[in-house]
């Protein structure tokens, strides 16, 4: 990846809902520069290219990957496309930051991880919550609590995806809600505990509409090898639709950490009622991009390919547990997918 510029040339693939967060982070970091946009939808690709200073755009991934100024790639396409796209990036010898989940099944996630191991390039799954202020504060606070025993992490909202055509609502494309959003929480509690997840017991609910094919409310209970239990709730099914709340509770051998829904935000009461005004702290996407660029530069990666594979396995275990009503062993999910 010899290049005249000192900065990393980044290609963004897939300019849907989340891409703007990544392009803003790229623009804000002097170590990176946006060098192109790829999207299957030519109109959308062109519009995103124009909005980002007229960078080159394409609907052809292979053509874009062949351009010499592309050092690295951010992929934010629908989840079921991750495996083929990521493997193509590895084979082109580029580094990759890829939206979660790494893939919609363990076999796909493993295929990606293996391709990057072979290519000797950096692969980072975008478990962005590790980069949020609250998650870093909890990670730091855990040092005072000793061995963690019980953790609660709830991310609750009433915002459902736009309408029935949203790919996230289609489990064939998103992998289901445990894969799409659940992996954020499953990865975070695993990172917080630093322990190996053994079992997942999950309960799901189709709260917004009985006709949903995904569970807009998920409750996933993770049992860790060291004995700790983590209860993760991920909701898009709460009411009112404007509801947004996060809650963290950690019980450790030396005490308890609480970060309740009203601990961080200001509370605003106006003509439409009472709501939260989140603090303007660090930008998680910028922190994440920085961690990725650090890893490309040779630093220890904040999120590894193994973290991505494990999170996918936990998500698959959660979906299966909802279907069977029984706890599912993470090892069973990993084993049956082959090594």
């Amino acid at each position: 990846m010899e290049h005249h510029s000192a900065s990393v040339g980044v290609l963004v693939v897939g300019v849907g809902f989340i891409a703007e967060q990544h392009t803003a982070a790229i623009h804000a970091d002097p170590r990176a520069r946006l060098v192109g946009i790829v999207d299957l939808d030519a109109g959308r690709a062109a519009a995103a290219a124009r909005a980002n200073g007229g960078v080159p755009w394409s609907t052809d991934l292979a053509e874009a990957l062949a351009r010499p100024e592309v050092d690295a790639v951010v992929v934010c396409t629908p989840n079921h496309t991750h495996a083929p796209i990521a493997v193509a990036v590895a084979e082109a010898g580029r580094h990759l930051l890829i939206e979660k989940p790494l893939a919609t099944d363990v076999a796909g996630a493993r295929r990606i991880a293996a391709a990057f191991a072979d290519a000797g390039r950096v692969l980072m799954p975008a478990h962005t919550h590790r980069c949020y202020d609250y998650a870093r504060a909890v990670k730091e606070g855990l040092g005072d609590l000793g061995r963690p025993e019980f953790l609660r992490l709830a991310i609750l909202g009433g915002w459902i995806w736009p309408d029935w055509r949203a790919w996230v609502l289609d489990p064939a494309r998103s992998g289901g809600h445990a894969l799409h959003n659940g992996v954020h929480l499953l990865d975070l509690v695993t990172w917080w505990t630093g322990d190996r997840p053994e079992t997942v017991y999950a309960r799901g609910r189709k709260q917004t509409a009985a006709e949903l094919d995904i569970y807009d409310y998920l409750e996933m209970t993770v049992g860790f090898a060291g004995g700790a239990t983590a209860l993760c709730e991920m909701s898009r099914g709460h009411r009112p639709a404007t509801y947004a709340a996060r809650d963290v509770l950690v019980v450790g051998e030396h005490g308890v950490l609480t970060l309740p829904w009203d601990a961080e935000a200001s509370i605003v009461t106006d003509e439409s009622g009472t709501g939260l005004l989140p603090p303007a702290g660090a930008n998680g996407f910028a922190v994440q991009l920085g961690a990725w660029l650090d890893a490309i530069g040779g630093a220890e990666p904040l999120m590894t390919p193994g973290d991505g594979v494990l999170a996918v396995a936990m998500g698959v275990a959660a979906e299966r547990s909802i279907a069977t009503g029984e706890p599912v062993r993470v090892d069973d999910v990993l084993t049956e997918a082959g090594v």
Binding site: E149, F150, Y201, E219, A228, L231, L249, E253, H254, V256
Partner: peptide, 25 residues
């Protein structure tokens, strides 16, 4: 887990409840 027991209850009407209970430090 340690000092805390987690109870995951299924009620009638599809209602679920979850209780953490215990004596901590």
């Amino acid at each position: 887990s340690g000092d805390v027991t987690l109870l995951l209850l299924d009620h009638d009407r599809g209602l679920t409840s979850t209780i953490s209970v215990g004596r901590i430090s």
